[in-house]
Nucleic acid binder design. Structure first.
Ligand code: MN
Ligand code: MN
Ligand code: MN
Ligand code: MN
Lengths: 224, 224
DNA sequence: ATACAAAATTAGACTTGTCTAATAAACTAA
DNA sequence: TTAGTTTATTAGACAAGTCTAATTTTGTAT
C-alpha cells in the first residue's frame, strides 16, 4: 500500500484545481459545490468529497457561505497547469500544424505530464510566447500572468474598429465558425451596424468579408 | 454510469499491453502471470484480473500452459504506444535538449496522450527518425518495425571492434555511467581483453578511454 | 412566518485497479 | 512416486472517484 505523498496530485485533483481557478476568474460567481459540479460535469456529491480532500491538503479553503477558494499552493499549482496547457497549445499549432480547433483537447492531456523542467524547456523551445493560440496569456514561470485590456466585441459601438485579441469560447464548433469567417487573432473588425431588435451585429471582417453575427457570437470574441 | 466503449483503453490497460509486448520480444520467456507481474511490478493476483479483462476484449489470448499472447489488435495497440514513446523521446532529446537519461520517464507519460494524428505529425516534425535516442527502432505508422542486427557486447571476441547501436537497459543509473565513459550510440568499442574469472571486459572506448567493465555491463550494451 | 424551491450534505453503492492470504495445480528432485 | 516448492487462481478487502437517492439546510416569496 503505497502511501500517497502529500504533494502527489492525481489527474482528477489537478482538474478540480483548474476548474476552481477558472470559476475564480469570474469574480461574480461564488465558487459553490454546484458551480464546480457544473464546470467539471460531475455530481455535487462528488464535488463535496473532493472539496474535503483538497481542503485537507490545504490546497483550497471551504466555507459553506464563502464557498471554495484556492489557497496559495492550490493557486500556484492551478496556474502551473494552465501554463503547461497553453504552451502545449502553441506547440501543437506552430510545430505540429494542428488547427485552432483541435489543439485544446490534446493540450488537456498534455498539461498533466509531469517533469520539473518541462514547461520551462518547452517555453524556451517555443521562443517564450506570450499568448496561446486563442489569445490567452501564458503564465510566466514564476506564476505571473500578463494582463491585457480585453473588451467583448458586443460592447463595441457602431462605426468603431477593433482587433481580435482572444476567443472566449474555445469550442471546436465556435472556432470552426471563426475559420469560416476568416476571423483569427489579430483580425481587424469594424462594427458597421447593430440590429436593435436582437443586438445582432453587422461586421466588416478584414477587407473582404461583410456579415451579420448574433449577439452570442459578439459575446464570445474579445477585442482590444 | 458511462458504459466504457469496447475500444477505450485505460492507462493501465495500455501499460499491460506494453509489458506483454516487451516480454514477447524475449522469445525464450513464456508470458506467464508471474512474468507479467515482474515486468509491471504488481502482484500475480492483479495480473490475473487484467488477463481476464484483456482476454474479454480480445486483445490477448490466454491459456495456462501457453501463457498470454497478444492478438492482432493488442499487438497493434502495443506497437502504436511504443511508437509514441520513442518519437517523444526523440523530441525531448533533440528539441528540448533533455539528456539521455531523463527522457524515458517523461516519454512514459507522453506515450499515452491520445489523438489520431499525433504520432504521424510528431514523426513528420522530427523528420521521420528511424531510431530513438537509445538506439531502438521507431515503428512505422503501419506498424512495421525496422529490424537491425544487434549483438550483445558480451559476445564480441577479444581483438574485435564494434559500434554501439543500442542500449538494452535504459535506466538512469546505467545511462549516466555510459555518459561518464563517453559511450553513446555510434561509439566505437574494441574488446582488448576478457577476464576469464568473471568475464569482465577490458575495452578501448573511442580513442581516449580504456577501461574494464563488468559482464553485466557488457550484457546491457548492444553493438553491431 | 410559512411554504416551496434550490443548494449542500450524507448514505450507500459501484467500478477500476490494487493488495494479502488462502487454496489449488503443476513442477521438481530424490 | 511422494514430499516440497513454485505457480496460478480465488476470496475478500481497500482506496479513489464516481453516482443516485435521501436528508438537511438555506433562501425566497408571499
Ligand atoms: Mn485550451
Ligand atoms: Mn485537464
Ligand atoms: Mn524509453
Ligand atoms: Mn506507460
Amino acid at each position: 500500500m503505497p502511501i500517497p505523498h502529500e504533494t502527489m496530485r492525481s489527474l482528477t485533483e489537478e482538474n478540480y484545481l483548474k476548474a476552481i481557478y477558472r470559476i475564480s476568474l469570474n469574480k461574480k460567481l461564488k465558487i459553490s459545490p454546484t458551480a464546480i459540479a457544473d464546470e467539471m460535469g460531475v455530481s455535487a456529491a462528488s464535488v463535496i468529497d473532493m472539496i474535503k480532500k483538497l481542503s485537507e491538503k490545504k490546497l483550497i479553503s471551504y466555507d459553506k457561505v464563502k464557498g471554495a477558494k484556492l489557497l496559495e499552493r492550490g493557486q500556484k499549482e492551478a496556474v502551473a497547469i494552465i501554463r503547461n496547457h497553453r504552451l502545449w497549445e502553441v506547440f501543437l499549432l506552430e510545430k505540429l500544424n494542428y488547427s485552432w480547433d483541435e489543439i485544446h483537447d490534446i493540450a488537456e492531456q498534455l498539461e498533466h505530464v509531469k517533469h520539473p523542467e518541462l514547461a520551462d524547456r518547452l517555453d524556451a523551445f517555443l521562443g517564450h510566447p506570450e499568448y496561446d493560440p486563442h489569445g490567452d496569456p501564458i503564465p510566466k514561470s514564476n506564476g505571473d500572468i500578463p494582463t491585457t485590456v480585453k473588451t467583448l466585441l458586443s460592447e463595441i459601438e457602431i462605426g468603431k474598429s477593433c482587433r481580435v485579441v482572444a476567443v472566449k469560447d474555445t469550442s471546436s464548433v465556435f472556432l470552426q465558425y471563426l475559420v469560416q469567417l476568416s476571423v483569427n487573432i489579430g483580425t481587424k473588425i469594424k462594427v458597421l451596424d447593430i440590429v436593435p431588435f436582437d443586438n445582432s451585429m453587422l461586421l466588416q471582417i478584414g477587407k473582404e468579408i461583410k456579415t451579420t453575427v448574433s449577439k452570442r457570437f459578439a459575446e464570445s470574441l474579445l477585442v482590444d
